[in-house]
Amino acid sequence: MSGHDHGDDGVSRRKVLECMTWAGTGVLWTITGGVPRSLGIIDSAEAATAAAPGMTFLQISDSHVGFDKPANPNALGTLEEAVNKINTMPAKPSFMIHTGDITHLSKAAEFDNADRIISQSKLDVHYVPGEHDFLDEDVKFYRERYGRGTKGQGWYSFDAGGVHFVGLVNVVDLKAGGLGNLGAEQLAWLEDDLRGKSKSTPIVLFAHIPLWTVYPEWGWGTEDGGRALEYVKGFGSVTVLNGHIHQVMQKVEGNVTFHTARSTAFPQPAPGAAPSPGPMKVEDARLRSMLGVASINFKQNEQRLAIIDTPLQG
């Protein structure tokens, strides 16, 4: 059951309030997510997917193909190491998401090189752009490659294994002094996209810049990210996957798990630990322990998706 169904004309005010009370307490969603099916309170959609085995997908991020500075002179090489690592995983993941900054400078050759390496995983890849992917004069290279079938600046949603995935773009039309930006058009689309979804549907939101405020002094957050989180409030299981900050960070707030992935190119300092968020040069021996990918496993009836961060080494 979803809140908006009860807002239709002809439904009594009392009923609407009743539903809001349930949603507000969050009790209903906890029960739906956690109690065995035999109690018979799971709707048909969930019962149908409950029989499916767990699904695993991967997240890679911030490959910065073309980066050749001291923090990692060969970002293409470490991307290839990451893909090799993916290829040796014991269970083949269902697909992969890439949370942006595929390239460093949006050059055609950088996109080509990234694609040549990432395609060796032989997985479907769902991309969202980082600010480094929109730097070409006509802002067309990313869109030509990955924008097909998307809305606006490149946002979209899809369903896999009973989970609803939403790819968002928060690197366009940034305002002076501000943070990442989703914008009114995208937020309206998101609200509409989630409308009618059963509240027991697990939701995964992914975007480049963290949707939550990690460290505004370095621009690590999204100005209107709170609006997007409002729209997923009633859902029992929400996972927010981001990149941009080149390090693992996790926070759980109610039904929402926030997580950022490592880069495959170079590490960045912990918030406030250096004068700037720029590439962090570490000893060569340590670099690969600070790069990596994330693997996310979803099992029906488990509210939280299990996230395992795997470094390239160590």
Partner: peptide
């Protein structure tokens, strides 16, 4: 003015 990639830079 600002940096359109890192808008906290003004």
């Amino acid at each position: 003015y600002f940096c359109s990639l890192h808008p906290h830079m003004t």
